[in-house]
Amino acid sequence: MAADGAQAQSVQTQSAAAPPANGAPLLELRDVDASYGKVQILHAASLAIHPGEVVSIIGPNGAGKSTVLKAVMGILRPTTGQILFDGQSITGLRPDQIVRRGIGYVPQGRIVFRDMTVAENLEMGAFTIADKGRVRPLMDRVFTVFPRLGERRTQRAGTMSGGEQQMLAMGRVLMSEPRVVLMDEPSLGLAPRFIELVFEKIGELKEAGMTLLLVEQNAAKSLSISDRGYVLELGRNRFTGSGPDLLADDRVRRLYLGG
């Protein structure tokens, strides 16, 4: 799979492998190369996520973790390779078209529309929902997941704390009723209590059956709630395996888990 063969994907204990190996993947990257300008970031990156799975991508800085998400979202166009969603190619589509297919994305840095209220931010999340009558119930559902947002629905998003903004960014993505959600470093730069909260909420989403693809610095925490994980290094797949397996793997521990 890897272009230069040297670092072919090394699957950990295939035995205890990912539960839903059967059935077609919901989202799949096949040998995707992607570049920023002249610098190639992804080298034949491949991964697959099945319905209901929570998958983490971990790896050192500069490994291209976020780039994988941007390539899926169409923010960065792959130079080669294919991205399939629900069996259909979405390679080369615009981000808004990809969102309409059912993929949600929480960008890094808890970016909200600062000059808009909480409710307006959520409304923007529901932009693809054609039936505007459903926006209200969807918003109420977000408020049950994130009660804090409900209390602050008329507050300008820019005036909220970082953790609250991250909750809003996560709430906003749910408004489009996505079939899979991509989250880029959801815990980055947050106060410890909010980091806990973020993972708690991710756990709740998992419980509710949401398919999630996480990119996280905090590899240990991330793998612990994931069904499977991919280890990316310099834009190449290095290891893959179930969350617990990866957590237990010596090489992964040594290299990426700081112990």
Binding site: D96, P107, I111, F113, D115, M116, E120, M124, G125
Partner: peptide, 25 residues
């Protein structure tokens, strides 16, 4: 209006507006 808000959202952060499904073009 939704479109008006989409315009404001795009003005504030085009990339995020796009991943909300707004056709920023």
């Amino acid at each position: 209006s939704t479109w008006g808000k989409a315009i404001r959202a795009t003005a504030q952060h085009a990339e995020v507006a796009q991943v909300c499904g707004i056709d920023v073009g």
